[in-house]
Design a protein around this nucleic acid. Structure first.
Lengths: 229, 229
DNA sequence: CAGTGTGAACCTTTTCACAGCA
DNA sequence: TGCTGTGAAAAGGTTCACACTG
């Protein structure tokens, strides 16, 4: 435990642990075991122990973990002891939903600005933020010290918006547009693709249906019907 | 290439390839190489070739892949040659945004129903669907043959809604609620957690900031400030 | 001869299993 | 005694590199 860099897979689970821990704290639980946390987070206990061991030795053998202390450590590690100003590009349905999403504010992500290109939208106020013109992005980023940009534009506009964000100095981008965006390597990008998730579900759903057909004797074993020569 | 089951990691990338291929087809490109597809999908070419090899040998050595044919094969493999009726539970901002999201319909996901518990919402019409009472879920699933359920409720309601979905026979769930839901193992669940993604970005953003501070000589090398005894 | 398909090497992640400590 | 922390083994995923073929 002396390498400061935590495996990606672990970083991806820390927010899940954090949520589970916060919930425990709210219910008055002050101590938990790797087993208990595992259950609450939907993983197994070995994973929890290994993941937490990357942060340090914050547990007590024979007892477990102090919930409040662990919350603090996970928060610190994730960089959630500070607020992060966020800018949203694209004021469509999704962009609007995100502005109103309570979960962001609760976790220290403050949406400080929203930009769009449509004249009809610019000037409109959504909750506490006013939609501004995309051309002001650079200036907004500088004056509000935005660290994270969220892209909620149509796919066709995503790359241009990303380029502008990068030019303005943003180094972390969350991309909801169904498009691959290319950025310099020092910029982090994460993508959330709504229909991609449905497509993955469709794959497994189809597979289950096919499997049942076989069990019921309604079909032979050539599952998806592929027929290579 | 004789095992019908495709690695999870590959299944997760097939929709990305599909989108890239469809875009190519729309631009009139009829053939592509693993290199070309890799660039469009934001991965490397070895991965593309290996992934596609799980579907079969659909390329031509020295030439590449026929775009139209490959689209067909990927669609078939993902189960997108049929339509999938989808039900959304929770008519908040996100649920409403999803109903109006064009990307679903384009890919064969038809939102056939929407349910909520709030009296004020039930009866309201959002686009083509009317919000119905949650208690009707069972009946709706049977009559419309919904295969995929999407949870857009607050975290506190997620498990109950998931239970109802499972009881009604749904075997694929996409969960947007920031909560871990537990289901029988034959049910597939995928989750999309909006603030989780931001938290992951915050981690890397913080890391970059810390790294720069060190480079600029503003701090010593103890990156995140952890101080184990 | 360009570009696929694929074994083999490599790296990451998960799981096991148990020594070690409160 | 009970539960953490962690090496070691196993599984899964990625990349390399090249034989093979249209």
């Amino acid at each position: 435990m002396r390498d400061r860099s935590i495996p990606e897979a672990t970083v991806g689970r820390l927010p899940v642990y954090l949520r589970a821990l916060v919930e425990m704290a709210e219910h008055g639980t002050s101590t938990t075991s790797s087993e208990g946390l595992a259950e609450a987070a939907g993983v197994n206990s070995a994973k929890v122990r290994k993941d937490l061991s990357y942060l340090g030795s914050y547990g007590t053998r024979g007892v477990g973990y102090d919930v409040a202390y662990l919350i603090h450590q996970v928060r610190r590690e994730l960089g959630l002891t500070q607020d992060w100003p966020v800018l949203i590009a694209g004021a469509g349905n999704l962009g609007r939903a995100l502005v109103n999403y309570k979960g962001f504010g609760e976790r220290g992500f403050r949406i400080v600005a929203m930009v769009d290109v449509e004249d009809g939208k610019v000037g409109e106020r959504i909750g506490p933020v006013e939609i501004q013109d995309l051309s002001l992005l650079d200036e907004i980023v500088r004056s509000t010290e935005v660290a994270i940009g969220v892209i909620c534009t149509p796919a066709a506009a995503a790359q241009e918006v990303a380029d502008r964000m990068v030019a303005a100095g943003i180094r972390s981008i969350l991309n909801f547009a169904p498009a691959v965006i290319t950025v310099p390597e020092q910029v982090s990008v994460r993508k959330v693709d709504l229909s991609l998730e449905l497509q993955i579900l469709a794959y497994y759903e189809q597979r289950k249906a096919a499997l049942e057909a076989v069990k019921d004797g309604l079909a032979t074993l050539d599952l998806a019907g592929a027929t290579a020569p």
